[in-house]
Design a protein around this nucleic acid. Sequence first.
RNA 1: GGAGAGAUGGCUGAGUGGUCGAAAGCGCUCCCCUGCUAAGGGAGUAUACGUUAAUAGCGUAUCGAGGGUUCGAAUCCCUCUCUCUCCGCCA
Length: 427
Amino acid sequence: MIDPKLLRQSPDAVAANLARRGFTFDAAAYDVLDERRKALQVETESLQAERNASAKKIGQAKAQGADIAPLLAAVQDLGERLSEAERALKSAQADLSAIELGLPNLLADDVPDGADETANVEVRRWGTPREFDFAARDHVAIGEGLGLLDFDTAAGISGSRFAVLKGGLARLQRALIQFMLDVHTSEHGYTETYVPYLVQAHALVGTGQLPKFEEDLFRTATETPFYLIPTAEVPLTNFARDRILSADELPLRLTAHTPCFRSEAGSYGQDTRGMIRQHQFEKVELVHLVAPSESDAALEALTGHAEQILQRLELPYRVVALCAGDIGFGARRTYDLEVWLPGQERYREISSCSNCGDFQARRMKARYRNPETGKPELLHTLNGSGVAAGRALIAVMENGQREDGSIEVPPVLRPYLGGAGEITPEG
RNA sequence: GGAGAGAUGGCUGAGUGGUCGAAAGCGCUCCCCUGCUAAGGGAGUAUACGUUAAUAGCGUAUCGAGGGUUCGAAUCCCUCUCUCUCCGCCA
C-alpha cells in the first residue's frame, strides 16, 4: 500500500510514477472520496465527543444524587445521529481502502522505462552457454527419453500443467533443494523455516496477491477459505505481521522450501510444453525483513545469494533489471535471474528478486522500533527465489545433457546423490 | 469431535457498568545522588487517525475480532477466532 499521506499530499507525483507502469491513478476521484471521508470523520468524532461529555456529566450528576432526567432528554437523538454518521464514515473508509489496496507500489526512480519485458535491461551475464556437438534437446525430450519424466501419468491424475518425476530426476530435484537450503543457511545467514502452505486471505492481502489477483490462486471450499500459497514469500513475509520487531532482531533473513501453487489463469497457450509453467512447483524462497535504510543493499545481497546457486551449479545466466511495465504489483525494484536453456536457446526466468520497500509492511503492519527515534516504523520487505527448483532441474537437465541421453550432474550436487555423477535411465 | 478455562499496554498482572488509555510490578529512557563491576531517589514510557507549521496542544478510536444492550461497556448479552486443560481420534 502506498502511504495514504502521500496520496493526499502529492497525488500528481504518485500518478506520474504509477503511469510508468501503465497504471492510471485517478487522483481527482481519490481526492473527492477522501474529502468526503474527512468530513464524515470530523462529524462522527464531534458527535462522539458530545456523547462522551454528556455521559460523563450524567455519571457525575448521578453520583451526586441529582436529577438526570433533563440530561437524558438532551441526548435523546444523539445515538441515532451518531450511528448514522458512523455508518457513512465506515462506508467511505471502505471505498478508500478498496482503492488503496488496488494501487501497485511506487517504482524506484532508476527503474528503466518500458512497457513489457522487451524493455528490461541486462545488468550482467555470467558463464558461457555450452557449445553442443549434437542437437541439444529440451528437458521434455531428455526426461521422457530417460523414462523419468511423465506428463501422461500426471495428466491422468490431475490434468494438464502437472508432471510426475521418477527415480533419478525426482532425486535430482530433491538434491537441488537441499543444496540450496544448505548454502543459504550455512553461508548466507538465513534461518531455515517450515511454514504453512495453506494461508488465509489476510496473509495474501498483506503481501499484495489479494484482493486484486484472486484468479491466480487456488482456494479451498472450506467455510473460511484457505488459499494454497503461490510462493513462500506469503508465509515468510507475514512472519512480521502485526509485530514490532526490535532493531537487534534485524535484518531477518528467512528461507524455506515449499511447493508453490498457481492457477496460471490467463496464461493459456504459454509454455504448454514441459515443466516451465506448472500449477505446482518447488521453490526455495529467500525473504529479508530489514530497516528502511538497508533495503537497497539488501536487494543486491539477496540477488547475489540467488546468483551463487546458479554459479555453483555452473549454469550460465544473466541478471536483468525489470522495466517499469514488467515489475510486479508489490515491488519497487526487481532483478530477474534468467538461466540459459539450451533446449529453447534462450534465457528464461529462474529467480525474481524484489525490494517491496514498505508496501507490504504497511499492509500487514510489520514494524520495528527505530532506536534513533524510539518509535515504531514500517519495515522494508524483500523476497526472491533462491531459486525455483523446478526450473533449476530443467536447467541442469538441458545444460548437462549428453548425446546418449544421460545427464551429467554438477559436482556440487553429487554429495546429495550418494556421489552419483550422472542420471541414467536406470535412475 | 465432546467438556471446561482463558484472551488487558514491550512483558507479568489488577480491574464486573460511570472522572479507566486503563492500578501495580518488571523492562526501557532521562535526571539526581552515589565514586564504582551494585544500590537508592525523581520524572517519563502504547498505537492509529483527525485538526495543525508542528513528533506542541486538542479531539476520536483501540482492553482477541465483529455485532448488540445502555445516556455511558475492558466490565453485561450474542457470534466468531485463537490459546490452554481433560476426553476422543489421528500421522
